[in-house]
């Protein structure tokens, strides 16, 4: 092996090792304080009392279950699990809100299309009366 080939092989090895080390790095998870759970609990409560609860019942079920798990993790002092669950619950809330919004938009669009259809029929009736 020539010195040049050796250098190239060493460079590839270094890159592979760096890639491996980056892959082993922990995922980005939110920071947990003593109040995080209570804030989360309030956020969940707000969602339950809104229209979102009716629009996204499945997400609400998951949120409720995960909140219980988060409570348990907090009680057990498992901050990492609490952080993951908190992040997931907030993500679920976000999805629930989006689902509610999409449902609302779908409903609005249906109504608007009905309105448009009725308006077209009415216009056709009017135009049929015109000479």
């Amino acid at each position: 092996m020539t010195p040049k080939a050796f250098k190239s092989t060493l460079l590839v090895l270094i890159l592979l090792i760096m890639t491996f080390l980056v892959g082993c790095a922990p995922p980005t998870v939110i920071e947990i304080t003593d109040n995080t759970f209570y804030q989360l609990q309030q956020e969940v409560e707000d969602v339950k009392n809104s229209q979102v609860a009716n629009a996204a019942p499945l997400e609400m079920k998951f949120i409720t279950e995960k909140l219980q798990n988060a409570k348990r993790a907090k009680a057990n002092g498992d901050v990492r699990e609490e952080a993951r669950l908190t992040q997931q619950i907030r993500a679920d809330i976000e999805i629930a809100r989006l689902r509610a919004e999409v449902n609302r938009l779908n409903q609005s669009l249906l109504e608007k299309r009905d309105e448009l259809s009725a308006a077209r029929v009415y216009l056709q009736q009017l135009e049929s009366q015109l000479p």
Binding site: P27, V29, Q87, I95, L98
Partner: peptide, 21 residues
């Protein structure tokens, strides 16, 4: 693709969340 181990499930969940979002 750069993650592994027990954190992976959470990462997958969050990745699915971003996709769903």
């Amino acid at each position: 693709y750069n993650q592994r181990g027990e954190v992976k499930n959470h990462a997958v969940y969050m990745a699915r969340h971003y996709l769903t979002k």
